[in-house]
Design a protein around this nucleic acid. Structure first.
Lengths: 191, 191
DNA sequence: GCTGCATATATGACCAGCTTATAAGGGAAG
DNA sequence: CTTCCCTTATAAGCTGGTCATATATGCAGC
């Protein structure tokens, strides 16, 4: 960008730019908008956008928590209750990264991921995989809504666990799934 | 920590500390190990541990990629063929962020996400959502394996599309799903 | 034209958290 | 005692900022 962006256009564009890529320095932003870095700093001040290092740190911290959540506990969402082999409950706050751009509706596989990982958590096995799932999306979920998923083990046969998950938003069931989870026999087939 | 840690004990401890909390400055580490910050810097040099800002940036970038990869992308995997309303093909290279730590097996919802987003891509509609899915995981997928998903529209009834997706690894079918996709009536129910 | 004001840029001093290089002290081992 | 490693200190320079102050530019109204 060579031409100098006027302030009115620059401010919202600046906000979008750092949201999309938090790793941009003032210098880089200045070049992008054809102004000086000082102007960018004034703009940031006005929009209360913190500096690059702070932004980076925040992304890192947030993502770190999430990484731990995904890797350590292997639960998408936060686990609130767990009675092994019986039932479990997790909550997932839907955010901007989970939606379709056009419709602002939460992607199906995010809802699915919460349900599946809850189903995995609830069964009382060392290593397990999903075998079969029957799922139904009943209502679209908007970004920002809180997904409350309840899992219940309904049957168990040998190494197969039958788990039912129901997901609610504000008391309304938006999703339900029946899973058959299988304890893994290494290298072998799932079903 | 008041007592000065000897080098032999300090080095491995330093590595662990930084791994566990990448946000520690040299000054903080120095205090923790009862040495000067210069010593910490020499230690880092010896262990080739980058400085705090670099560590923070790396965590942020890695996590950012992961968030994007899992949540954001409209098509999970790469779209290779698309005949709107008829069939589509996508390829997903499985990576470290997709696996369970213990078993090194790719998470179910990653495979599901590829299939679902392919099913969405193949139907010829402006805005659409998943209504119902029947899915079956046949074999576990190891990290590094290439997932090839083929989607076919099998039926269409009003605003409902029936899509079958089969996912193969090296010619072996590891996953299959039947989706009923629904064009969205805004605010209304899905099914 | 000129004045006035918002916007924009420049300048200088300062900061954290480093890097690099150089120098120097202490303590155990030969 | 001397040597050598470990440790600390000191100074200069870097990035990516902060804050405060001064100056320049555009343009709108009179």
């Amino acid at each position: 960008m060579k031409t100098r962006w006027p302030k009115a256009k620059r401010l919202p564009a600046l906000r979008r730019a750092v949201e999309q890529d938090p790793f941009l320095t003032d210098e880089e932003l200045a070049q992008r908008f054809g102004v000086s870095s000082q102007t960018i700093r004034l703009d940031r001040l006005e929009l209360s956008i913190p500096d690059m290092r702070t932004r980076t740190r925040r992304v890192a911290e947030g993502a770190y928590r999430q990484l731990r959540a995904v890797h350590r506990r292997e639960i998408v969402g936060e686990l609130y209750q767990l009675e092994r082999g019986v039932s479990a409950l997790s909550v997932l706050n839907t955010s901007e990264d989970m939606v379709f751009e056009k419709s602002r509706v939460v992607r199906g596989h995010c809802i699915f991921a919460q349900a599946e990982s809850l189903a995995l958590a609830v069964i009382d096995a060392e290593v397990a995989l999903t075998g079969v799932a029957n799922i139904k999306y009943k209502y679209p979920v908007q970004v920002g809504q809180k997904l409350i998923a309840r899992a219940e083990v309904t049957r168990r046969r040998q190494n197969k666990y039958f788990v039912a998950v129901r997901t609610q938003v504000d008391g309304r069931e938006v999703f339900r799934a029946k899973f058959i989870m299988v304890s893994l026999t290494p290298g072998g087939e799932v079903l």
